[in-house]
Design a binder for these strands. Structure first.
Length: 594
RNA sequence: GCCCCGGUAGCUCAGUUGGAUAGAGCGCACCCCUCCUAAGGGUGAGGUCACAGGUUCAAUUCCUGUUCGGGGCGCCA
């Protein structure tokens, strides 16, 4: 409908241009939007106001000429000029009602479009280090990323969902070492666990499984392991330092000792066992959350195939690498970054940043038209250097969009609840899903603008009332399903064709309001997908549900009049379809019964 | 110090990229089931859109500055 009006206005604009009523340099954009107030029609355009300046004409006069030049349309009841020069369009009832047929014809496809024209876009999200289970912060990235991907798919992009697995580097070595130490504890050895080791209960679980599978083959007496290591930092229960030390140096030395004592073969095995256990857990967790990937991309394979070194060489060849203090630096400041960045350390190891450049170069070389990264907001300072690197490598940094997601803070009984009561660690995504359910979690995570801090109210997410938007929306869906069951129980049969022939009977204000809401859906999807703001879809669905509940409360669907009943059933089913389509994009289920 | 995000009703937040009288939910005060799920609907009170300038026919929206809150500024990942 909006496109139709847009075409009409474009033709009118063209007409005025031909009649030399406008200068050649007049703007060609045509503003058109839904009105907030129905008294001002269905759509309003500020075209005349926008043209007034360059044309040096009175806006109202221009508006009159534009309206006079508008081609006739049977979908428009009348056009009014209001205020300083707004052009207000009032649609016919038939035009309002026709959206029902559109929805019923298109079904699950209603709201989808081909704006993206099959262009390939990669969405990389979550990508948490595989050193432990996902926590609630990752959950927001997962829900947001999955929804952004769904939305882009809905508007015609070919979407590739990817998880970057940081399976190389220091953190993974610390994990392998932690597992081995817990394994030794399981074997009966006693020692002080390193303060910078992975303390989580899941590490013990992996160690216990390792013992069950392999027995005592990795057993080594604890005492020599810790001999002559740099002093660890030791704190008491209150967090006060009891013995000062260098915990970083301690853990690094411990990792080295672990590798030496175990030997390469055994070390690799424990490393792989830990990595796989955690990755399997993350994969299961996300799949249960409705988040599925096309690819799990390994950082290690990048290094192993020499891509990291090759990338550094390419940067060097381009003249953006220099040596200083024994390290190799990338001159990112040449591309707007605030300072240069190390790509290879004094000890010869490449940095995480170097891997990331290679990874992003690889993304571009895989031929994506558009690359989207979804990161935690704490990584925002990282954006300029990645873009700088891409530019230095001759790629177009504008093809990369980085979307930042702020933290989610859990609240229970009005108080912060970041820590799990059971383990004393960060609440995991799995615990959250078990507590509030997948639907509420998916919905609450995307309810707020991503760059806004999210206060996640656990009590609200669990409550079954109007306060809880997810129940409120799902309830609207279930109500329509319930009406259909009632219809059957009364021995009545729905006649869709009769309903379609009787749409003119839908003249109640509540029905018109509902029709208006339904007709907005395709535009909402398109806008929300384009600007990556799923929260607006969540808000739209609540508004749609509000319109339906108000209607349902005021008028009966199952009336004796066959024609009216079938028309209302079609309207109700169209509403149900749109709710389902919208919830589907958000990864939320639409239950038949509640 | 520099960078990013935010400041809108008592609370939590929207505001369709600059439009007409700034919205919703909760909370508060009332009202509505002989009737398809009251897990619902309705009425009312509640605002200097942080502050000060600027651009514009038009600013909550864009620009500059100030202020308050959150986060980030490693040869960590």
């Amino acid at each position: 409908m909006k496109a139709h009006l847009h075409t009409l206005l474009a033709q009118a604009l063209q007409q005025l241009r031909q009649d030399k009523l406008l200068p050649d340099d007049a703007p060609t954009d045509i503003p058109l939007e839904h009105t907030r107030d129905r008294a001002r029609g269905d759509f309003a355009s500020t075209l005349a106001l926008a043209l007034a300046k360059t044309a040096r004409r009175k806006p109202r006069e221009l508006a009159e000429q534009l309206v006079a030049a508008l081609p006739a349309s049977d979908r428009i009841a009348r056009v009014e000029i209001a205020g300083p020069g707004f052009i207000n369009f009032f649609l016919t009832s038939t035009a309002h009602q026709s959206v029902i047929n559109e929805i019923l014809d298109q079904g699950d496809a209603f709201g989808r479009s081909n704006r993206g024209e099959g262009r390939r876009v990669q969405v990389e999200f979550v990508s948490a280090n595989p050193t432990g289970p996902l926590h609630v912060g990752h959950g927001r990235g997962a829900a947001f990323g999955a929804t952004v991907a769904n939305l882009l798919e809905a508007i015609g992009y070919q979407v590739h969902r990817e998880y970057y697995v940081n399976d190389a580097g220091r953190q993974m070595n610390i994990l392998a070492t932690s597992i081995w130490l817990r394994y030794l504890e399981h074997c009966g050895e006693r020692f002080r666990f390193p303060s910078n080791g992975y303390q989580g209960e899941y590490v013990r679980d992996i160690a216990t499984r390792l013992y069950a599978e392999r027995g005592g083959v990795y057993m080594v007496a604890a005492a020599p392991i810790f001999r002559n290591l740099p002093q660890d930092e030791i704190r008491n229960e209150n967090g006060d330092i009891v013995i000062a030390g260098d915990k970083e140096a301690h853990i690094d030395a411990l990792v080295e000792r672990t590798q030496r004592l175990l030997g390469d073969h055994h070390y690799r095995y424990i490393f792989e066992r830990g990595l796989n256990a955690i990755l399997d857990d993350i994969r299961d967790d996300l799949r249960e959350f409705g988040v599925v990937y096309d690819e799990w991309y390994s950082e290690r394979t990048l290094a192993e195939c020499g891509a990291v070194n090759k990338t550094i060489n390419r940067l060097r060849d381009a003249g953006y690498v220099y040596e200083q203090d024994g390290a190799l630096w990338f001159r990112s400041s040449a591309f707007g970054d605030e300072k240069d960045r190390v790509v290879e350390r004094e000890n010869g190891q490449t940095t995480y940043f170097a891997s990331d450049i290679a990874y992003h170069l690889d993304k571009f070389e895989r031929g994506f038209d558009w690359v989207i990264d979804i990161w935690g907001a704490d990584h925002h300072g990282y954006v300029p250097r990645v873009k700088a690197a891409l530019q230095a490598l001759g790629e177009n940094p504008d093809k990369l969009d980085v979307l930042l997601v702020q933290f989610a803070i859990l609240y229970r009984n009005g108080e912060r609840a970041q820590m799990s009561t059971r383990s004393g660690e960060f609440v995991t995504l799995r615990e959250l899903r078990q507590e509030v359910g997948n639907d509420a979690a998916r919905f609450f995570y995307v309810m707020r603008k991503s760059e806004q801090h999210l206060d996640f109210d656990l009590d609200l997410a669990k409550s079954q009332s109007r306060d809880n938007p997810i129940y409120y929306i799902q309830y609207a869906y279930a109500r329509v399903s319930s009406v259909l069951r009632q219809l059957r129980d009364k021995g009545l049969v729905r006649d869709e064709a009769r309903g379609r022939a009787s749409l003119a009977l839908l003249t109640e204000p509540h029905e018109e309001a509902l029709l208006m809401a339904l007709s907005r859906y395709p535009e909402v999807v398109e806008t929300v997908a384009r600007i990556h703001e799923p929260h607006q879809l969540a808000h739209y669905l609540r508004e749609l549900a509000t319109a339906f509940h108000a209607y349902y409360n005021e008028h009966r669907v199952l009336v004796p009049d066959d024609a009216l009943r079938d028309a209302r059933l079609n309207l109700s089913l169209a509403t149900r379809q749109v709710i389902k389509n919208g919830l589907n994009l958000l990864g939320v289920s639409a239950p038949e019964v509640m």
